[in-house]
Write a protein that binds this DNA or RNA. Structure first.
Lengths: 151, 151
DNA sequence: CAGACTATTGAAGATGATTATCAATAAGCA
DNA sequence: TGCTTATTGATAATCATCTTCAATAGTCTG
């Protein structure tokens, strides 16, 4: 959960024997310029990159996003059925969690530093290297409670 | 997050115009008799049901497990890449969370009632009907920190 | 308790997000 | 500058999950 520049991204990649490519830098930029509360699926990213004149292939997008999640740069979110969303993994005090309607996927973000504390403490206690910690609240939103079918 | 018997399950299903079937009852039993800390994928369930002489079809398993998650009877867990796991959604003080290694998927469970409190309070404040609340800590376990490749 | 209504099941096929493959390209390093 | 090999893009493959539909069986009513 650090703040990345092209240089620090390059340093961290090179440290591991990997390379900084224009594609990786572009994708990082997209996430860094995303308004708070936004998250993108691989498909969303692909579309957006095309629109801004960077036709990065879907393969590369999937690989990059997975790589960055494994490095702790992005968070992988399960906000909807069937596909993942990604957002920047920001440190305190931007760190937040999600309240998700399991019927319509409407999502509300909220913050809680006590949760982040529990997360870091638990990881540390077990000797795990923390990448991300997120509280997911699965629930049914007021609108969907009114509609009976199905479930 | 209640404790279900065949009768209370039937009552809740019938309330919504649905039915209690032997398949649904059998699947609930499997989860109720699962040792603490175990969770099953759809495929796991299928195998286990076959072994105990209940050849329930995969379709029905997928449908049932999804239904029960929507009802708040089961929790849907993202413990490994590529497929979901399910476990009983138990109330306090059995309610727990997961610390997951993103490389090898080794999982450690831990409890925290402060998190459950944050979850219920947040859902209530927004008028959402709470089904499940889980803190997922994504991290790298001590063993995988030692192995360098890949990621 | 029988009959009607319709939710549910099982089998098979369809879907679609994500991965793997592989030749061509281009970072990073000596 | 050249070498090594990580990365890319296009394509095809994978595989968990969902759909479809005819047959079956819960639930409710009289």
């Amino acid at each position: 959960m650090a703040i990345y520049t092209a240089d620090s991204l390059k340093a961290e990649l090179n440290d591991r024997g990997w390379r900084l490519t224009p594609q990786r830098e572009t994708i990082l930029h997209i996430f860094q310029n995303l308004p708070e509360g936004n998250h993108l699926s691989a498909e969303d990213l692909h579309t957006r990159l095309h629109e801004q004149g960077d036709p990065i292939s879907l393969s590369t997008i999937y690989r990059t996003v997975k790589l960055m999640a494994r490095m702790g740069i992005l968070r992988e979110l399960e906000l909807a059925e069937g596909h993942k969303h990604y957002e920047l993994n920001q440190p305190y005090p931007y760190h937040h969690h999600h309240l998700i309607c399991v019927k319509c996927s409407k999502t509300i973000e909220f913050k809680s530093d006590s949760i982040l504390k529990v997360g870091s403490k638990t990881a540390q206690k077990e000797g795990y290297h923390l990448l991300d910690c997120q509280l997911s609240i699965h629930a049914i939103c007021p609108q969907c409670q009114r509609s009976l079918f199905p479930v």
